[in-house]
């Protein structure tokens, strides 16, 4: 202790072993300051750098447009209606993909037989990015909603399956042994040990695939759609309206943040046993 204090006097310590903690208030403050600096710099650049200002709208324009299209429709719909479409596509595709993915993953992670049967096809499909399914999905399901559910569903399926496999396989042999010692049957071993101990990893999959869905839906809508946040961006691109592009981007990223936060809250509730403290 004494030595480390002496050293501290001589030089500032690297952040990872520094003893002074940043309070939550401080970090919020810094976040706010840096955010404000970026916005101000952006606005200044638009105002005073002609090249930049010509192609890039400032934050003021973006916010103004965002407020405007809350009331006035772009295309057929207003901002929240577009967002609603995007959210609906994400949710339906996500839920279907997550259910199938978790079940498939748990089966593969638990049973060697299931793994042997499923893995050849799974291993071929797995590395194909969801976006690469867009043309095929359109051929199979047409230009409507079903193809979008399929694309989101596929991306969610792969991520959830991989995480569930990992979770099931990482189940501690010792805990399985303890359960058998207490008289659990093979089936109970699954429902009482493998399943609950995979839950944190399953949630990791649900979390990652939710973020991935926000990105995938954007791309899917940008390729082909008539409404949604991705369409706003596409429309902005096609009409040379960069402000609209940025509005679409901000809307989808804020939505993604909100979804991730909600998911994390659910996760904390569901697996409080795996978090230390409190």
């Amino acid at each position: 202790m004494a030595t480390s204090n002496n050293i501290k006097k001589k030089k500032t310590k690297p952040a990872i072993i520094s003893e002074d903690q940043i309070t939550k208030k401080q970090s919020t403050l810094y976040a706010f300051i840096s955010f404000a600096v970026v916005v101000v710099l952006w606005q200044l650049a638009v105002l005073f750098l002609p090249n930049f200002g010509n192609i890039f709208p400032g934050p003021y324009d973006v916010v103004a447009l965002m407020i405007k299209i809350v009331k006035e429709p772009v295309g057929r719909l207003t901002l929240f209606a577009h967002l609603g479409w995007t959210l609906k596509r994400i949710f339906i595709g996500y839920i279907i993909g997550a259910v199938i993915g978790v079940i498939t993953g748990l089966a593969m992670g638990t049973s060697k037989l299931a793994n042997a049967i499923i893995s050849p096809v799974f291993e071929i499909l797995r590395p194909i990015p969801a976006i690469a399914w867009v043309p095929m999905a359109i051929l199979w399901f047409g230009l409507g909603e079903a193809s979008k559910y399929f694309i989101i569903g596929f991306s969610t399926f792969v991520i959830c399956a991989l995480n569930s496999i990992a979770g099931a396989r990482a189940t501690s042999e010792k805990l399985k042994g303890a359960a058998r010692m207490l008289g659990a049957s093979e089936r109970q071993l699954f429902s009482k040990i493998i399943l609950p101990s995979s839950v944190p990893q399953i949630f990791a999959g649900l979390q990652i695939s939710l973020s991935a869905s926000c990105s995938t839906i954007l791309a899917a809508e940008m390729v082909r759609s008539e409404e949604g946040a991705g369409w706003l961006i596409l429309r902005g691109m096609n009409t040379g309206n960069m402000t609209l592009v940025l509005v679409g981007l901000i809307v989808i990223s804020v939505t993604g943040l909100i979804l991730a936060t909600v998911m994390r809250a659910i996760e904390r509730k569901a697996i409080s046993w795996s978090f230390r403290g409190k």
Partner: peptide, 27 residues
């Protein structure tokens, strides 16, 4: 493994997702 042979391990091996009661009534 057989429930008539009970084992207490060095590294406890409790089921972390169960409460104390859940662990004790598991068998």
């Amino acid at each position: 493994p057989d429930p008539k042979i009970g084992v207490v391990y060095q590294e406890t091996n409790l089921f972390p997702w169960l409460t104390v009661m859940g662990n004790v009534e598991f068998g």
